[in-house]
Each structure stands twice: as structure tokens, then as C-alpha cells.
């Protein structure tokens, strides 16, 4: 009997119970509706957000900047990672610097870019690109460095040129690690882009939450935050699924 219970169904049931508890707490006056939105108000608020606040437009604005930042980060990160692999001394010289940057709170640089570039999409794009590039560089170098020696020797024995060696041997063998870097880069870019949109009250989904909070529209704010959770989780799940297909067991 126990084995037939689906974790997903139990999870949904638990979520429904939590919503009922929240509804009861607010309805009973134990929690102010200015702190916790009634779940029954959050559903209609999503419709209002789509119709009046341009939630879908905001989603596409965030999505477009994230995609642009992700593609730029990939275009910079893979060649940079390859160069660090190809020129071993440079790789050793810079790897710990990139690792430190990876651990550093890069998002806090956004006031500098506000000063240099201004409060516009370019600042958001640049911040997304910077945060997305570092994991791609690091993972590309790790991936290329982990290509088994026999595979490289096969390329050498077939007299492959440098470019052939890269495209026929090194790159295909390193794709799983490189994709892990791209996945991390895209997630970092998305998280930072939404965060900066919220902080500077400009752009897509983050700006919507900031606007609604400023206007004290609590159910709408909860709905927008819920939508962001859904978007982040969906992007994460899709990328994880692609990675699972690419990575050999």
C-alpha cells in the first residue's frame, strides 16, 4: 500500500494543506493579509498580472536577456576554456583566479555597471554574461583536461590537424563537462538577471515584483514571486534533463 503512494501526489496534497492553513490563518485574523496573501487571492492575481501588468511580456524580456547573456557567455567561455587548456601555464596561472571569481559575490558589482553603463538592459545583460561566463570557462578546461589519453592518441595516429583534433576528438569527449558549465552559466545568469531587475526596478520579472511591492499589492506580489519560482524551476529541470541525456552513465 505504502509503495503505491506517489511522492508527487503526496507533495501536491501537502501543498494544498499548507494553502488551506495559510487561508485559515489570514481569514481568522491571526496573520495580517498585508504580510501573507490569501491563496484564494493569489490565483486571480495571476490573471490580473497577465492582463494588466504585462507578466508575459516581462517573462520574455527576462528570457531574452538571459538567452543573450547565456549565448555570449558560451561564446566567450568555451574558447577561453580551450585556451587555458591549450596553454598549460596560462591555465595554471588563471585557474585559481577564476575559481576565486566563481566564489566571489559578482552580483554586487552591479552598482559599478550602473555607473559605467547606466540603468538599462545593457547593465543587466553584462552582469548576466559575467556571472555566466566563469563556470563555462572552468568546466571547459576541466572537460578538455579530462579527455582520456588513448582518445588523443587515436587522433594523433590518424594524423589529425590541430583543428581536426579539437572538433573530432577533444570537443566531443568534453561535451558533457562543457554542458555542465553552460547549464550552471545559464542558471547563474538567470538568477542574477532577475535579482538585478528587482534591485534596480528595471526590466522583466524582477521589476514586476519590485513594482508590486512598492504599490503594496500583496497578492499580486506573491503571484509574481510564485511565477519566478516556476520559471527558475522549469529552466533548471529542462537543463538538467538535457544534461542527463548528454552525460554518459
Amino acid at each position: 500500500m505504502r509503495a503505491t503512494r506517489s511522492p508527487a501526489l503526496v507533495g501536491l496534497a501537502a501543498l494544498a494543506v499548507l494553502c488551506l492553513i495559510a487561508e485559515a490563518l489570514v481569514a481568522g485574523g491571526m496573520v495580517s493579509p498585508l504580510v501573507l496573501a490569501r491563496p484564494s487571492d493569489v490565483g486571480p492575481a495571476i490573471v490580473k498580472l497577465i492582463r494588466e501588468e504585462g507578466l508575459i511580456r516581462a517573462f520574455f524580456a527576462t528570457f531574452a536577456v538571459t538567452l543573450a547573456a547565456g549565448l555570449t557567455a558560451t561564446a566567450i567561455g568555451i574558447p577561453a576554456g580551450f585556451l587555458l587548456y591549450r596553454f598549460e601555464s596560462f591555465g595554471r596561472a588563471y585557474e585559481s583566479w577564476f575559481a576565486a571569481l566563481f566564489a566571489a559575490p559578482l552580483v554586487l558589482l552591479y552598482p559599478l555597471f550602473l555607473v559605467i553603463i547606466g540603468r538599462n538592459f545593457m547593465t543587466i545583460f553584462v552582469m548576466g554574461t559575467i556571472t555566466g561566463t566563469i563556470p563555462i570557462i572552468l568546466n571547459t578546461r576541466v572537460g578538455l583536461s579530462s579527455v582520456p589519453r588513448p582518445l588523443i592518441n587515436v587522433g594523433v595516429s590518424f594524423n589529425c590537424s590541430g583543428i581536426q583534433q579539437f572538433f573530432k576528438v577533444l570537443f566531443p569527449a568534453a561535451v558533457p563537462d562543457i554542458f555542465t558549465g553552460i547549464r550552471l552559466g545559464l542558471i547563474y545568469a538567470l538568477v542574477n538577471i532577475i535579482g538585478i531587475e528587482f534591485l534596480i526596478n528595471f526590466g522583466g520579472l524582477g521589476r514586476v515584483v519590485s513594482d508590486l511591492y512598492d504599490r503594496f499589492e500583496i497578492p499580486g506580489m506573491y503571484a509574481a514571486i510564485g511565477f519566478i519560482i516556476l520559471v527558475s524551476a522549469s529552466v533548471f529541470a529542462v537543463l538538467a534533463r538535457i544534461e542527463k541525456r548528454i552525460r554518459p552513465v
Binding site: G11, V35, I228, A233
Partner: peptide, 23 residues
């Protein structure tokens, strides 16, 4: 049961929860 919810929240930018936290 909880893994999908924890993962979903873990990947969300936490700064957007600031309004709820401040309230």
C-alpha cells in the same frame, strides 16, 4: 516528496523574497 519543492526554491533568486521577508 519534498525534493521538487526544495530544488525549485533553491534555484530561485532569493533576493525576490526580500519583500515577503520585510513584510
Amino acid at each position: 516528496v519534498v525534493a521538487p519543492y526544495v530544488t525549485a526554491l533553491a534555484t530561485t533568486p532569493k533576493i525576490v523574497f526580500l519583500p515577503i521577508v520585510m513584510l
